[in-house]
Amino acid sequence: MVRVAFVTGGTRGIGRAISARLKADGLKVAAGYSGDDANAEACAKELGVMVVKGNVGVFDDCRAAIDKVEKELGPVEVLVNNAGITRDVVFHRMTPEQWGEVIRVNMDSVYNMTRHVIEGMRERGWGRIINISSINGQKGQIGQANYSAAKAGMIGFTKALALENAKKGVTVNAIAPGYIDTEMVRAVPENVLQQIIAQIPVGRLGTGDEIADMVSYLAGEHAGYVTGSTLTMNGGQFMS
């Protein structure tokens, strides 16, 4: 049986690597995105995946996206909550807009997307929910009170949802990446980037493919005994 996966933020960076890997694993894949139509079209063509536009911070957008995917590909059985943004600023200067936008896109989206697939997963007796958190949700980061709060919230959500759905064959896990070699990280000034790498025991940035490898395992048939876990992938930079 060919399963269907939905990857939010699935056309760029880590999300694109995840979409590519799940497609290579033989799943039908839908990749969500919010704004860059040209990049999304290129992703669809190059990877052979369905792309779906919408704002994950809006409940009704998520319902429409899931409906569209399920009509075209079938029931969503693997959900990867990967979409995220940053609006970095120290908290004493943070505006309500900077706080609210990050919480909506990074945290509310996890509810918005999961709520529309969880009942179907429970009814079918099988499902995989994988939440992409962050090292900064585990240890915090200066200038990221909003981002760190949202990513820490994802970890608590993962544990609670795992407990609620374990007997229904639905696993819920989180991955907390460290610094990954993406466009966002490559945009950091070289001197700052080298300071970051110097703090990573393995001496390099991670890759999107390495995160995708872990998602591939968690999304598969052999991961039924792994649930409620937060898997750290940060080169030893933070151990919990």
Rank of each mutant, 00 (worst) to 15 (best):
M1F: 12
V7K: 00
G9W: 01
T11K: 01
R12W: 08
G13I: 00
R16C: 03
R16P: 02
R16T: 02
S19C: 03
R21L: 06
L22E: 00
A24K: 14
A24D: 12
G26L: 04
A31F: 03
G32V: 04
C43F: 09
C43H: 04
K45W: 07
L47P: 01
G48Q: 06
V52E: 02
V56D: 01
V58T: 08
F59R: 15
I66N: 01
K68M: 14
L73A: 11
V76S: 02
E77G: 13
E77Y: 05
V78Q: 00
V78T: 03
V80S: 02
V80Y: 01
N82A: 04
I85G: 09
I85Q: 08
I85L: 13
D88Q: 09
Q98W: 07
Q98L: 04
R104S: 13
V105S: 05
N106K: 10
S109M: 11
S109G: 14
Y111Q: 09
Y111L: 15
M113Q: 10
R122L: 12
G127F: 00
G127Y: 02
R128P: 02
I132P: 00
G137R: 05
Q138I: 15
Q141L: 12
I142W: 14
Q144N: 09
Q144H: 05
Q144C: 08
N146M: 06
Y147T: 04
A149S: 15
K151S: 04
I155R: 10
F157R: 04
T158S: 07
T158D: 03
T158H: 01
K159E: 15
K159W: 13
E164C: 07
A166I: 11
K167I: 09
A176K: 00
G178D: 00
I180Q: 01
D181F: 06
D181G: 08
T182F: 05
T182S: 07
E183G: 13
R186T: 10
A187Y: 11
A187M: 12
V188S: 08
E190G: 06
L193C: 10
L193P: 05
I196K: 01
I197K: 09
A198V: 11
Q199C: 08
P201K: 04
P201F: 06
P201H: 05
V202A: 09
V202M: 14
V202D: 11
V202K: 11
D209S: 15
E210S: 10
E210H: 09
Y217N: 04
Y217K: 04
L218R: 00
H222T: 15
G224K: 09
G228C: 12
G228Y: 08
T230N: 12
T232M: 14
N234S: 10
G235I: 04
Q237D: 10
F238P: 02
S240R: 13
S240Q: 15
S240W: 13
